[in-house]
């Protein structure tokens, strides 16, 4: 009786230990993988057309969804913000509200979430399928490093695209907010821009937003690449890896956002 209980407890503990060791193993793999990607990065700049091709697929093809969402996010911010601000008689502050929320938070974060959904999944599925159809092994047979040829250009493409997309998001969002606030609601045009310009700081707000988007770009792309590279070479494995990319990227973005904000907002 007692020894039976003991073995049950031991089994549960063994299960936990097994999971933990597995996760640590995977994490170690991810770190080694990141190291290799950085090691082979030189290749992706020496053969720039590979990187440019990937910027086209991750950056340019994501433009539509980013710009349309930015426009709507900006418009909704202005509507909601006006509704609350006018209760306190300070509807001119709408410009500050829209610009600061976009530049500091929504621009980088929403772009990163959309980027993970639009470009990250594509990267994971592509690399996972390349692995499943043994294209990566074929490359290795021909003494072409798949990390240098396939992974590194995608990594740098993501890192370059993210800040550009986030900046476009913020800019188009401010335009959307302007369209709702000034022509539609009738906030004074001069007050809208001057309040915004007086309260948005270049170093504190805009540069910090760009730093955030670069970090998110690194995180999202690296997660997508690793999940694809690590996927079991089956149809099910690739589909699971794609799901994991979206879930892990979103969680990583939100957690990193909190950590970075807590460092940036302190005086």
């Amino acid at each position: 009786m007692f020894s039976g209980l003991l073995t049950k407890v031991a089994n549960v503990l063994r299960g936990i230990g097994h999971k933990l060791v597995d996760q640590l193993w995977r994490f170690g793999g991810a770190v080694r993988f990141s190291g290799y990607v950085l090691l082979y990065s030189g290749e992706s700049f020496r053969r720039l057309h590979l990187t440019i091709r990937e910027i086209y697929f991750t950056g340019v093809m994501s433009l539509i969804i980013i710009l349309v969402s930015a426009f709507f996010v900006g418009m909704v911010l202005a509507l909601q913000g006006y509704n609350t601000l006018q209760k306190y008689g300070s509807s001119e502050a709408i410009g500050v509200l829209v610009a600061l929320s976009l530049v500091r938070e929504l621009g980088p974060v929403v772009t990163a979430l959309l980027f993970a959904g639009r470009a990250g999944t594509a990267i994971t599925a592509e690399i996972g399928l390349m692995k499943a159809t043994e294209q990566l092994s074929a490359m290795e047979m021909m003494a072409v490093s798949p990390i240098a040829r396939v992974v590194a250009p995608r990594f740098w493409a993501g890192v370059i695209s993210m800040p550009l997309l986030a900046a476009l998001f913020s800019m188009v969002g401010v335009l959307g907010g302007y369209l709702v606030a000034v022509p539609l609601i009738g906030v004074d045009n001069g007050a809208f821009w001057s309040q915004m310009q007086a309260n948005v700081d270049f170093r504190e707000d805009i540069v910090n937003g760009v730093i955030k988007s670069v970090v998110f770009g690194v995180a999202c792309t690296m997660i997508a690449l690793f999940e694809g590279f690590d996927a079991p070479p089956t149809a099910e494995g690739v589909s699971r890896a794609t799901t994991r990319t979206v879930v892990n990227s979103s969680l990583a973005v939100l957690a990193l956002d909190f950590i970075m904000t807590s460092f940036m907002i302190n005086p």
Binding site: I52, I55, Y56, G59, V60, L63, A99, V103, I160, S161, P163, L164, L165, A167, L168, S170, M171, V172, V174, W193, M196, Q197, A198, V200, D201, F202, D205, I206, V210
Partner: peptide
């Protein structure tokens, strides 16, 4: 297209700095 994208992104950062941040 990549050139257009990069130019637009740079312009957006510059626009944010000038128009929004009033650098």
């Amino acid at each position: 297209w990549v050139g257009i994208f990069a130019a637009a992104g740079m312009a957006a950062i510059l626009g944010l700095a000038m128009k929004v941040g009033n650098l």
